[in-house]
Write a protein that binds this DNA or RNA. Sequence first.
DNA 1: CGCATCTAGTGAACGTTGTTAACTTGAGCG
DNA 2: CGCTCAAGTTAACAACGTTCACTAGATGCG
Lengths: 217, 217
Amino acid sequence: MVIRRKSSKGDGGPATRQRILDSARELFALRGFERVTMRDIAHAIRYTPATIYLHFRDKAALLRELVEQDFLALSARFHKLSRLEDPVERLREMGYMYVEFGLAYPNHYRLLFMTAHTESMAKAGNGPLTLGAGSPERDVYAFLMATVEECLATGKFRPEYGNVEQVSQMLWAAMHGVVALSITKGDDPWITWKSPTRTVALLIDTLLRGALAAPEE
Amino acid sequence: MVIRRKSSKGDGGPATRQRILDSARELFALRGFERVTMRDIAHAIRYTPATIYLHFRDKAALLRELVEQDFLALSARFHKLSRLEDPVERLREMGYMYVEFGLAYPNHYRLLFMTAHTESMAKAGNGPLTLGAGSPERDVYAFLMATVEECLATGKFRPEYGNVEQVSQMLWAAMHGVVALSITKGDDPWITWKSPTRTVALLIDTLLRGALAAPEE
DNA sequence: CGCATCTAGTGAACGTTGTTAACTTGAGCG
DNA sequence: CGCTCAAGTTAACAACGTTCACTAGATGCG
């Protein structure tokens, strides 16, 4: 309907949109989603809160776009692991990488995996981002599944691990648990927390030893 | 305006306090913490919102007291497992029980393990509930640690699993991952989720096989 | 030029939230 | 009777996400 022929500021329109995204990202990562107000974001770029609504439907739509970008970052890091020949070793590195990612950017991780954005998506579900050759979410999960399948095809896993999706979800859940527990409970003083890095190392070792067909040490 | 006839003062005070707790519990479990307002709770017991603040410092304090009670319920269920002789079998049942608990009461679980109530505790930290012979939180975790230690003492585990806390936290994290992922992402349509019950079964099997000293099948 | 149009942005408001301060009511008691 | 005190209410506050009516300024066209 509307042809974007505005060119006075040239890229003035999309530019402010990007500025909103940038300051939102920074504030979210700094203080967490709930503790950042629309007025905060607007103030950071010296605009009025209403301006944000010219570029994004809700606060949730803002979140969603950032989440999508973060998924892309994680996905890119995962794909760098393709050079590892041994799928088991790739799986191990994926686990480390995943947890490391979550611990390095806890607020991002919270947005990605600890908040159900089914509702947000339903509200602002008209964006083209969820379409287009599989979202980064799908991509990350597909990469995990492909690696698991390769482990299976090369006979590295025991026969009872034939269900690729089941195994993938199990592995994902285990890694997620380390990150999520560390993020939400890591500051509770009533427990003496061990380093999550050590925990994930032990967890991966245990899982692989339990799943591999032949003893590998 | 108030229909309620006050029986007397001696009994009236704690009674309304309990009514607040009851309706808050019901509403929280039904809609989740954030989607229940103080006005909702007050309306449910036909009182004014301000009345709640005569009995509880915040909304968070209300939450906290309920959380404490839920922990007690889980703790009680755990202690019933004491009759199991084999600590490994006890561990396995604890895992099932934990996940089953979380899936049966997702909103409760969210309150218990998926929201950091460090801040809430700090605000309403004067309550006597955190004191007194170890809170249920500590209790549940202590029960897990004791079972792990028993596994170790009886030589069921491999020698590299000597750190009781490390192993306990690893197991807890893995179980937590299954529940948490299922709660937050279980409704996402872009993935075909396997039954969490099956996932946790596979996970426990894998973990135990990886941790046990001797092959057990 | 003159007029209409579109766009990015503003300012003030709306409805809802958690929370608090000031007032009212009624029982118990000297 | 009058005092006190707990339990509740009324009305408001500030902060939040969000919307609506409006405006400054650039552009397109006769």
